[in-house]
Structures are given as structure tokens and as C-alpha cells.
Design a binder for these strands. Structure first.
Lengths: 185, 185
DNA sequence: AATGCTATGTAGCGCATGCTACAGAAGGTG
DNA sequence: CACCTTCTGTAGCATGCGCTACATAGCATT
């Protein structure tokens, strides 16, 4: 129960690093094994198959990202639309989170084609994001946060998209305009 | 000069269909050849290598998409932010354009990892989008369309993203809120 | 010491990929 | 007709992939 699980956990942690670095397309069993300091043979001993391995590793990555988000904006803190957008963008748009966002984009592209396990994992992560935003948005007297938080989600994903394809300036410009627009309401 | 080019053009057209259907990840030389009614051997006679073939085919897909956009909103027509957003979303968010948007997402994911030819093509397409929006947005007295059009671009990409990962309702909700917010300005 | 379960290395299978070598067909030109 | 360039089919190479068969090493229990 212990040795096997300990090595399994260690492998997951290192594979998460590797996955963030090379992306889904570059994550072969052999390369993952090398990154984890083991062999492909052992990975298939720890995990049922590659899909299982990827699902577990992606969950680990998602957990790390959640921790980073909570670190930047602790649970309980609520901000109005414009300010929350600025805060979120400052976090997920930072270069240090770029590997996460690249992977997120790749995952979404896979999910859009209903590829497994991309679809399931992406759905879970998106649910997490959605809940995170709803728990941090301050809608004032308006009691329904669904609309504004959906908009914020869309805006942030759009900013990430622009950044990802190399148009950081467009993303920053859009972020500026979005916060301004949200404030003049 | 003529027979070869005619067959080449025909191949490009059919390969564009196939590429839209299966995506970059599913587009092998052999499957592309089958879709085009020829052999991989001939594809590599028509094109320098797979990258060349993909670049040309993607350009063709992009041209088709541009035509579809111009069809939905002819050149010369200008709309204020909110209305333009609604019009664009009604177009690119329609199920008939879904294959294009899935491919676009996949291309962006590849571009984010600087994979060729994804990077170059995605940059060109994004430039086209950007110009298209700037030429259709009506900023009123405000003479600088860069800010609002960047925001519109980001919002639309975000809506596409949400839709792509299976959250159409979130996308529609966000679109509603975005147009409402843009109008109350 | 014998037995049996856990862990791991070695080797390789079958398949798909991008791409190439070679040979031959087709067809215009001298 | 002979020849030469353009085209196209056949076969295959080298690589990387996910995954498996088999054998063995280590350790624990009887």
C-alpha cells in the first residue's frame, strides 16, 4: 500500500511538471516516464492505461492551479465585476501561469472534439472556475451572480486566448476597456 | 501548368473539408489523401511537405471563413459595440460554423506552443479578424476603435471558448450580459 | 528453506506516421 | 519512331507510439 503509492504520487507530481512543459501533444508514455524517473513499463503498472494516467495527472495540475488562484484571492473575498476582472487577469495572465493556460487551451481544443479524457477533465475544471468566480464576485443588490460571472468568465478566457496566440497587447488593451466599461455602469 | 494546378486546387478544396471535420490532430497525409481522392505520394508531389500542405489548406479554410463573415455582415456596415457583438456572436456561434471554430481553437493551442505552421497561420487569421472588427465597429464620436474592438475580439473568443467546451448556456448568458452592459454605457 | 506475492527490467509486437527510392506509364517533341 | 520530361503506382524505410509477454529480483510469510 505504501511504497507503490508513494512512488505513484511522486510520479504524478513530476509528470505534472512535464505535462505543463510539453503539453498533451508532447506527452508520450516514454517521455512522461523519463520525466518521472521511471520506465513506461512502470507507468502502466501504476496506472491502468495512458488515459487513466493523463486524467490523474491533469487532476493534479488542476489542484495546483486552484491553490494558486486561492493564493492570489483567498476564499471569502468578494469584488465587484471590474475589480475582480482586473485581479483575475493579473493572476492568470501572469507569465508564471502561462504553462497552465497553454495546457488549458489545449485541453479545451481536445474537449471541443469530445476527445477523452480531455472532455471530462475540462468540464470539471470549468465547473471549478465557474464556482470560484461566483464565490468571489460582488453583484451588489443584484442577487443573481450567474450573468455577470458568466460574462467575466468569457472575458477572461478571451483575454487568455488573445495572449496565447501572441497578442498580449490586444489582451491588455481589452482588459483595460473591460474594467472601464464595468465601472461606468 | 494547368492539369497539375487544377488537381492541386481540387485537392486543397477537399482537404479543407476533411481538415474541418477531423481537425489538425486527425489530419494525416494518408487520410488527407483519401479525402482528396488521391494518394499520399501525390500530395507530396503537389506540396513540398506536410507543413506546406497544411499551410495552404488552412489558408483556404481561412478564406472560406472570411467569405462567410462578409456574407453575414457585408463590408461597409458599421454597428455600435453591443449590436456588433450580438451580430458577430450570432454568426460565429452558429452550429454551422462550429467546425471552423473548433479548428480555430486547435490552431490557437498549437500557436501557443509555437508549433509551425500553426503560429504563422493563426497570426494571419487573427490579423484578419482584428481588421474585420475594426472596419465594422462604430465608435461614435470616439475616433479610436482599437480599444473597443480589442474588447469585442476578446469577448467573442471567450464566448467561443465556453461554447467549445460544452457550455453553450454560459456563452449565451455571457453574450446577453455583454450586450446589455455595452448598451448602458 | 520453500512458497508466493510484489515490483521491475528486457524485449518486442503491431500499428500509424512522414517521407523516399525506384520503376514504369503517359504524352508531347525532335 | 526515339527520346525526354512529366506524372503516378508500389513498396518500403525509419521512427515513435501504446501496450504486452516473459522472466526475474526482492521480500514476506509459512
Amino acid at each position: 500500500m505504501s511504497i507503490r503509492d508513494a512512488r505513484r504520487r511522486m510520479a504524478i507530481d513530476r509528470m505534472a511538471d512535464h505535462l505543463l512543459e510539453v503539453g498533451m501533444a508532447g506527452a508520450s508514455l516514454r517521455s512522461m516516464a523519463a520525466a518521472a524517473g521511471t520506465s513506461d513499463r512502470m507507468l502502466l503498472y501504476y496506472f491502468a492505461d495512458k488515459d487513466d494516467l493523463l486524467a490523474v495527472t491533469l487532476e493534479h495540475v488542476a489542484a495546483r492551479l486552484t491553490a494558486l488562484l486561492d493564493d492570489a484571492l483567498p476564499p471569502g473575498v468578494r469584488l465587484p465585476h471590474g475589480e475582480l476582472l482586473r485581479a483575475v487577469w493579473a493572476t492568470v495572465g501572469s507569465p508564471s501561469l502561462q504553462p497552465y493556460m497553454r495546457l488549458w487551451l489545449e485541453l479545451a481544443a481536445g474537449a471541443a472534439r469530445s476527445r477523452m479524457p480531455d472532455r471530462a477533465i475540462a468540464g470539471a475544471i470549468m465547473g471549478g472556475f465557474s464556482a470560484w468566480v461566483e464565490s468571489h464576485i460582488d453583484t451588489g443588490r443584484d442577487s443573481r451572480p450567474a450573468g455577470p460571472s458568466a460574462l467575466l468568465l468569457a472575458t477572461v478566457e478571451g483575454l487568455l486566448f488573445l495572449d496565447a496566440i501572441g497578442h498580449r497587447e490586444l489582451a491588455d488593451l481589452a482588459a483595460e476597456n473591460a474594467t472601464a466599461l464595468a465601472s461606468t455602469r
